[in-house]
Design a protein around this nucleic acid. Structure first.
Lengths: 333, 333
DNA sequence: CTGAAAGCGCTTACAG
DNA sequence: CTGAAAGCGCTTACAG
């Protein structure tokens, strides 16, 4: 019953030609008569032949796999990011006949990634979320495995693709400043994430450029848990800030629930904005001013950059992608 | 600079033995003297040699890859499920020297999966979330690719691993009934998901077994969007139900926000429970009675079941995993 | 216990 | 334009 998979040998025999020729007809490389190629292609089409990726891989010393490294300790609010990014990578990879292997890396344990490299199961790696001293990045660098970071990496030598968080944050902040909102507080997560450092820089730069005084006591970084977010909000309110910017949507949603519980009205009593947009905030009433990034595109660009790197094509060390500033009711004057 | 990867030939030459012997020492198959094996192992250890998975794969006609099929059209509330499940699969796979390839399947488009099968890149597949007429399942069945469904599948012939949603829903409902709560409403999502059918059956069974009248007009199924959830809640309140059970946490969170907006107190005015627990509900005040499932375990069991199937070991067509009933304040009398 | 040899299904100089 | 042959790095009957 089970029709054995055809091989290139079967085709050669059936068509009375050498398998070299069959291979050439399929790959399109090397000179081959138009007629022969047609015959082969017709045959392949009829029998739905597809070359074995693994045999091809062995012959070419490639795997046609790339790995996507996901931290195991993401918070659930990070999931949409990983998912969309993966979606973009996966689509682009597919199109280029590559497949995506996921490698979960838990705090300090990169053994899954090491296995992948040791056993030579991958041609390259995409890192999602990189920290200042990034273990996977260091490992891959040392082992000369091509990789690209989805998101900014600390070291400039790392190939990286990122949305332009710095400019985005700067622009959103600038807009608020020019609307006359001057006392703006910022609540941010871990400063060991490069992206949070960029966000802070963008925020600062906006004030600098506008020549407006920035009250540093309104900046809260490394705010790691809900309790600390809430106390930060309390302090900020005491300090009579006009606006709170949350560095990401998870922080923002805590800010919002705290404000709602304490019966503050947005934007009348206090304005709120977020440096990151997601479905978490989408539903909120009133709508929240936020930065929006196309994460699927990020994934796609990462993937094509990686594939180019694998093929030793020329690539940009650093690619910066766009952003959208969504001005909504929450910052209305 | 770049140290070329060692091959089994290098080892054989350096150790002055045949590569057959080296292979045996590594795999542990076949008779081999203790001393020879030690020498090989020592060498391997010193040079950190790892056999090429791809060469091994070609020789054994295996890929040591399994695919995890993720629907592209999940809602963001499903993400934690996919993520945890994937985490469980990935860990177990790793341990058995398999790797996980993700295959995204968008509505009606299983081309990514087809490619994987055609190019022989995988030994088996894990399906997450199966519908009544499941395209991927039908395709894999037709192509005789081993696969297991994470979650209940419609056809009994499909190998499936699932939490026991039926018993769980029945138990939670029974507890509420025995507490004297009789007018219980149910709001459920798409009935084309097998899991939602099981939930409904469990709910019904609890009433049946308790011999309590079930007002069918309090059952809302196929409630697909927030607007419909809200109108369902309104109707339910008009019908003087004492409790609302949401089939999943996404529905539940909409129910909760609707109730909160209309100033209903939980549990005083109306009780609320959910047939699914997640971080979405975790934060809620008051705490919500819900069913809890270990999704990581589900992933692990799926994976080991699949690997057994691939190795033609004996396996159970159907494995039912446990659950936890979390009784909280939201259903307190 | 050990090895020579064939084979897994492709690709690719090399020669014609 | 086409083919014979070697090679990618393993495994595994088969023979000793």
């Amino acid at each position: 019953m089970e029709t054995k998979k055809k091989t290139i040998d079967d085709i050669a025999r059936d068509l009375q030609i050498s398998k070299t020729t069959v291979s050439r007809a399929i790959s399109g490389k090397g000179r081959i008569s138009e007629e022969t190629r047609r015959r082969v292609l017709a045959y392949i089409n009829e029998y739905n032949y597809r070359p074995s990726a693994i045999a091809k891989g062995l012959a070419k010393s490639k795997t046609f796999n790339i790995a996507f490294v996901m931290p195991g300790d993401y918070s659930s609010s990070d999931l949409p990011f990983f998912q969309k990014c993966m979606w973009g990578i996966s689509r682009t990879a597919s199109r280029m006949d590559y497949d995506l292997i996921v490698s979960m890396v838990e705090e300090g344990d990169i053994s899954q990634l090491v296995r992948l490299v040791d056993r030579q199961k991958i041609d390259g790696v995409i890192l999602s979320r990189t920290t200042e001293k990034d273990e996977p990045a260091a490992y891959l660098l040392a082992n000369q495995i091509p990789f690209v970071a989805a998101g900014s990496a600390a070291e400039e030598m790392i190939i990286q693709v990122d949305n332009d968080h710095f400019s985005a944050c700067k622009e959103l902040t600038s807009i608020l400043i020019y609307k006359g909102i001057r006392r703006i507080a910022l609540i941010g997560g871990s400063n060991s994430y490069i992206v949070n450092q960029k966000r802070l820089m963008g925020f600062r730069e906006a004030f600098m450029q506008a020549g407006v005084f920035l009250d540093s006591s309104l900046i809260y970084t490394d705010v790691e848990n809900p309790a600390r977010i809430e106390s930060a909000v309390e302090e900020i309110l005491e300090k009579k800030a006009e606006c709170i910017i949350a560095m990401d949507d998870s922080i923002c949603s805590h800010v919002l629930s705290k404000l709602s519980r304490d019966h503050y009205r947005i934007p009348e009593d206090i304005k709120v904005a977020s440096f990151y947009n997601s479905s978490l905030l989408e539903q909120h009433q009133p709508a929240i001013t936020a930065l929006n990034f196309d994460v699927t595109e990020l994934g796609m660009v990462c993937c094509s950059t990686l594939l180019d790197a694998i093929d030793k094509k020329e690539i940009n060390r650093k690619t910066l992608l766009g952003y959208e500033v969504l001005m909504k009711e929450s910052t209305q004057k």
